[in-house]
Amino acid sequence: MSMVRDRAPTRITAAATATFAVVGLGLIAALLLGAWPLIGEPRPLANLLGGLWDPLRGAYGLAPFFVGTVVVTATAMALTLPFSLAVAVVLSRPLPDGVRLGATRVLTVLTAVPSVIFGWWGLLAVVPWVRARFGGAGFSLLAAGLVLAIMVTPTLSLLFYQALRSVPRAFRDGSAALGATPDQTLVRMELPCALPLLIQAVLIAVARAVGETMAVQMVIGGQTVLPTGLTSPGATLTTQILTDMSIFPPGTRGHAVLDVMALVLMVGMYLLVRLAERWVAMP
């Protein structure tokens, strides 16, 4: 009896792992199978890396969306990184317990706000601001980056805070006892010690930014040619999947492109993770 009970958690865990493996591998297999008609064609790269997106005439150049994805994500990260780090540092400093608890609760609630809400807010506030400040349509990579930055900030702040909190109190005391100011302790001890976790946090934030679709689609403009600058409209791999998904039923050549785009996103994320691992040993 007790043996059965003891083994139940193991079985549940194993079943969950198996399900996860099947779903995950199934997803990758489905994407590969779906993408195969294009990957199997002669010169797939030349076609896929081109700058012209005219799928009804068979031109599947993804370059505008690569550029869009990279620029929007980089913009968002550049904007949110210093801000999120600042929030995390403030939270990790001596604070009245109530303030810290209140702030982390607010941040946690903010992480649950649906992305459509951020999209609406972007449409009402960010797009007009970009239009007033830089001219043009306002729908732009910059607007998308700004919306993403705001969206990712609560998550990233909390992850950064957790990373800084992982530095033992004894290290902080040790540093302070050697005459370090709080800022010196932060720069010379806490940040280096928390670096692996900080980088992991950044990767999670990048994954969220790269994968975000709806909020970005609402403010980016959806233009399918190579963007000429930060304030010009554009599209990302994900927004283009959303926009053109319904025109390509499964089994068509166009649908294969959507699968290629999804694969590219996964491979890109994998490469980023490997790069980060190479840079610093992950925990």
């Binding site: 005391d173 040790g174 006892a177 050697l178 005459g179 010196q184 001890m189 010690c193």
Partner: peptide, 24 residues
Amino acid sequence: GMVFQTPNPFPFSIFDNVAYGLRL
């Protein structure tokens, strides 16, 4: 200066630990 109950060297090299205060 202070020495604590549990040894608390930073997760750096031996050299960097001793040089920490000087570099500050």
